[in-house]
Design a protein around this nucleic acid. Structure first.
Lengths: 232, 232
DNA sequence: CGAGGATAAAATGAATTCAGAAAATGTTCA
DNA sequence: TGAACATTTTCTGAATTCATTTTATCCTCG
């Protein structure tokens, strides 16, 4: 199969300044969305052209991605996009479960009305997306919903750690085709989560969140394994 | 006040090749050990001389450290070492507690004899260091002990996440003067942890580890706050 | 004597350049 | 014909260089 056909001239020369964050974000998005194919070498020259930068800032960004675990730098042999393996995904969910529990335990004590309102709003959006059958929109809404829950704890370390895991998981989410049945079950979990949150029941909320994470993880794993075996 | 007086000529010109990891590790160590003072600008030129490299690889490493949260890159205004604030430290311990619990829950099921032997050995070393009153050695031993527990779960994501938190906490640990009384209590916790681990009591082990983390965190916070107020 | 502003110095961000290593290509010889 | 070696080409890692921005210094003017 051929290259992903990235058009080299999609961005104008780009104004000088500090484009760090932008370059990192762009690259990470490309990895997450599967535009940079797992297992393949990162096309340095093309990305430079694509982003309108030289190799220096690109390599700086690749170093950061490597530290985050999205790519691997093999000395003198180029950079490769690390593949998603089911074992690693299961491990990510295991850690995420522990954090979800912590979120549930902290949230009722610390959440304020604004945060609760935002969570309610995001929950509504996700439900609307599900009812409309808009998978892509649901994925984004679901992600935002859980991030908002984490944010409600007012713990930056927790948020950052949680987001890091979510991003890695998001990569797999893009790679697997979500099942409509799964969406409905996920939404049912969300309804229960909201009920516990409104009731301020920390322990129950913690259990719900942990369980929800486990369910999601198991479903994704099954689907990923199914797709992998189907490819052979 | 003057510079930390870092001798520019401590390393020879350095052979060419891939020194990435080494540069990152060196810089991180300097931050952790307080050699690069919190709040102050990172002396780029001096570090280049010190490490025998040019600005390009140094800046790549600084980007990684920035992503890890040890330094902050202010656009066009230089890089600064981020200060340790008690609030952030408390948050780190909160997250660590959740991971400790997970470690405790998983460990009895997954640990093998080799890992258990290594943990026992590290536990012995830490105790010896405590009895000898060697603070520095105890700190290292304690760190290695907990890392080994995490490693015993055979979950890479958990290990990486845990190590990341531990490193940030380690920075504060270097900054506060440990109290001998604290050391003894810590060691008592470790004895209980080992007992639970040998007994294979997952839930109890989880509780012990979580509690131990909370105690350690509270003690460090008190000490940090005490030192901060003493400085004024 | 002090505030405001112009000029000089420095430091930052990024492109370019250069040396060394790996892969690809071509050639020779069994 | 095909395997082993030599050569060329490409690519990687890092130093150097360059433009821009910021900071410091100094001069003028109130």
């Amino acid at each position: 199969m051929g290259d992903p056909t990235l058009s080299p001239s999609s961005t104008p020369p780009a104004a000088p300044g500090h484009l760090h964050e932008h370059v990192i974000t762009s690259l990470r998005d490309m990895v997450l969305r599967g535009e940079l194919v797992a297992g393949r070498k990162v096309p340095e020259a093309m990305l430079c052209a694509r982003l309108g930068i030289s190799r220096t800032p690109l390599r700086e960004a690749l170093k950061v991605l490597a530290a985050e675990g999205f790519v691997a730098l093999r000395p003198n042999r180029g950079t490769v996009v690390v593949p998603i393996d089911p074992e690693g995904l299961a491990q990510l969910f295991e850690v995420k479960g522990a954090l979800e529990r912590l979120i549930g335990l902290c949230l009722p004590d610390r959440i304020d009305v604004d945060a609760l309102a935002r969570i309610e709003a995001l929950h509504g959006e996700a439900r609307a997306a599900m009812e409309a059958g808009d998978m892509h929109s649901y994925t984004r809404g679901n992600h935002a919903f859980h991030e908002a829950l984490a944010a409600g704890t007012r713990n930056d370390a927790l948020m950052q750690t949680y987001s890091g895991l979510q991003q890695k998981i998001l990569r797999a989410r893009y790679a697997v085709n979500a099942q409509p049945e799964r969406l409905r079950r996920s939404m049912a979990d969300h309804e229960r989560i909201m009920a516990m949150l409104r009731a301020g029941a920390a322990l129950d909320l913690a259990r719900c969140l942990e369980e929800h994470s486990r369910h999601t993880g198991q479903a994704m794993l099954r689907q990923l394994r199914r797709q992998e075996t189907a490819k052979e």
